[in-house]
């Protein structure tokens, strides 16, 4: 789940911050409308990326530990479900705190109507949570022994 949250954070940072350039971490407080403001936002984007990198690294370590637990099924559905669950959890928490409560930034800054974009982001997070939960539940039926996979 932590690995999914970390990768979800990278999707946010790479796709929405850098490729589409819809927002930056502090773009609602410091609009990047000049070079200096853009570079300051770039710095805080870097801090965010560093944090989700740490999240991803811890997620890998936890996944390694979980793979050795007898109560965790060796299942592709559980793995993908956990990844989606983590991504959805990250989107919902980040969306609620950064977009709705603190207003650090909005999903799409270049419009007057920012709320629908923020709500769509939260709804997408909710869908990921549901899909992840369904896959994790389905994965409980996967009881193949690990030796079947050469593990």
């Amino acid at each position: 789940m932590l690995l999914g949250a970390g990768l979800g954070g990278f999707v946010d940072g790479i796709v929405l911050h850098q490729i589409l350039q819809w927002h930056n971490m502090l773009s609602n407080q410091l609009p990047p409308d000049n070079l200096v403001a853009a570079k300051v936002n770039m710095y805080w984007d870097g801090v965010f990326h560093a944090a989700v990198w740490v999240l991803t690294a811890i997620g890998l370590r936890v996944l390694w530990a979980a793979s050795r637990r007898p109560d965790v099924p060796w299942s592709g559905r559980t793995l993908v479900g956990g990844l989606l669950l983590g991504w959805g959890l990250f989107n919902v928490i980040e969306g609620l705190i950064d977009h709705t409560i603190l207003g650090l930034h909005h999903v799409y800054e270049y419009t007057e109507q920012k709320m629908p974009w923020d709500m769509a982001f939260l709804a997408f997070g909710g869908l990921l949570l549901l899909a992840g939960w369904a896959l994790v539940r389905a994965g409980r039926a996967d009881t193949a022994p690990r030796t079947a996979y050469g593990a």
Binding site: M1, L26, V47, V54, I58, E94
Partner: peptide
């Protein structure tokens, strides 16, 4: 800025 990441980390480690 680190609040959401920290919260997700706490929930993940708590579940584990």
């Amino acid at each position: 800025l680190l609040l959401p990441v920290g919260l997700v980390l706490l929930i993940g480690l708590g579940l584990f």
